[in-house]
Design a protein around this nucleic acid. Structure first.
Lengths: 275, 275
DNA sequence: TAATATTTGTACGTATGTATT
DNA sequence: AAATACATACGTACAAATATT
């Protein structure tokens, strides 16, 4: 039996120390030069070990300062199914995706950096909205925070015809639509949002996402496409939301109004050692 | 302005060639020694570039053979909400999570390696099932394939009391329960599954998952906890399923029986350049 | 079967650059 | 300005896996 390579052994050793709490979150690891001596390895080998810990999300490095054990963020839990059966696909925001009420009521979501553009619809959006090649869309982009933490990036796409033919002119103004776009579209165009479909994927972040969320290039983000339909089954909006996987989880409730408890919501290490 | 480091430039250069189709899936990249010469860099620098491409999932290396452009797997799409309103939380399998009917009918799911154990319930399971510390659970573990491709790993947990007090003895036999455990529990214990809750997270694979799915150590898996409840609101099962993110996507339908189209399901590069 | 060539993996050493204290 | 710590980049050597002769 070949023994595991040295850099893996060093990584394992450090991982054990971190997960046992010996090295608590926020604390600095020994420097590369120190680890070089304590483990009797070259600096490059030590660095290989640290790279593994980075890709596991256990540590982060800061040039000129050191390597630190990652502080875990108490995860945001988003319920993808409506919490209130009264609202059919529901209310506010950018037609969006809602923060769990459970134990989140003390948290304060904020939105900033609203940007509005008009573009030729990219294929993914065009197909979901049932448009033709070359058709244009109105695009409303937001940065979303919770308690000051960067939570998600959201972009909603509407057919440009809503503005040109449907008189929903406020869609293209870079102002928040206070009553919510769902309500607004119903008021001015008679479009009722009666259903939606969420499409959930995961991938690596692009450069912009990497910077905005301060995550590693080999981290993970959820990408959720929400397509909303009116009473006739016509798609009226596509909302694409990016959530970094290190601080976001999702819940889907089926078969009940869903005020069921959410076990372990407090526990920071949920899912750590699941096998 | 500092130029980007050389290994990133080399990675970008190769990425461009891959995404433009110049280097098609399955094809071998130039060897490290060749890249060393074409890019006038050291072998280690070339290797750093390739590591980035690996973590983006664009290439994979095979010792002794070479580096190859990843063949993308046509993603499996799983619908988390019931496709048939008639069934309340629904039928077969291990009480499980169901494969989309859409365009998947030609695909053949297979299950193998059924393993049954009795364990003290780990905290995550215990809390979800409403058990006390030290309580035991019956654990049914399966490896699941689609068209021969490793699709997911699933483990279902039931309170041991179902076997000792409830006479659901077949739970602890390593045999498939043909009619489905949902039906079986209803027959022998009168437990009707009327609702469930899915809890969706993403994380790095552990060693076993890494090997089973042949994914990189810095890849991503979805981990979905499905807690099923009976008519009284009592939790009767927790099913934990691991899905590698490179070949799995999920859909949640709200507000309609949901036979809506699934745009782009055929398109292999869904979500590639979404921004 | 055995030897050989090719290709990636691990490990070392060194030098220099950049960010922070 | 100097010291510290991580980042990039080069070079070398040998091991391990695979394919070929």
């Amino acid at each position: 039996m070949a023994p595991p390579p040295m850099y893996q052994q060093i990584a394992e050793d450090l991982r054990r120390q971190i997960e046992s709490g010996e090295l608590e979150p926020g604390r600095q690891l020994p420097t590369e030069l120190e680890l070089r001596e304590t483990h009797d390895a070259s600096r490059n080998t030590v660095r290989d070990a640290i790279k593994r810990l980075i890709s596991l999300g256990l540590v982060e490095t800061k040039p000129g300062q050191g390597t630190f054990v990652t502080r875990k963020i108490d995860p945001f839990v988003t319920v993808l199914t409506p919490t209130d059966e009264g609202e059919t696909g529901l209310g506010g925001g950018e037609g969006a995706i809602y923060l769990s009420q459970v134990k989140r009521q003390k948290r304060t979501p904020k939105v900033s950096g609203l940007k509005v553009e008009i573009q030729t619809a990219p294929a993914e959006i065009r197909n979901r909205l049932g448009l033709s090649e070359g058709d244009q869309v109105v695009l409303r982009h937001e940065e979303r925070f919770i308690d000051g933490i960067r939570w998600s990036l959201q972009t909603s796409y509407y057919p440009l015809s809503f503005v040109t033919d449907g008189h929903a002119s406020r869609l293209q103004t870079a102002q928040n639509i206070q009553e919510g776009t769902v309500r607004y579209l119903e008021d001015v165009m008679g479009l009722k949002q009666t259903s939606y479909q969420d499409w959930i994927t995961a991938r690596s972040p692009n450069d912009g996402e990497q910077k905005f969320f301060s995550i590693a290039h080999d981290g993970t983000v959820f990408e959720i496409f929400r397509t909303a339909y009116d009473q006739t089954g016509m798609p009226i909006r596509v909302t694409v939301t990016i959530f970094p996987a290190d601080r976001n989880q999702f819940i889907v409730n089926v078969g009940r109004p869903a005020d069921l408890g959410t076990p372990e919501l407090d526990t920071p290490d949920l899912g750590k050692d699941a096998k």
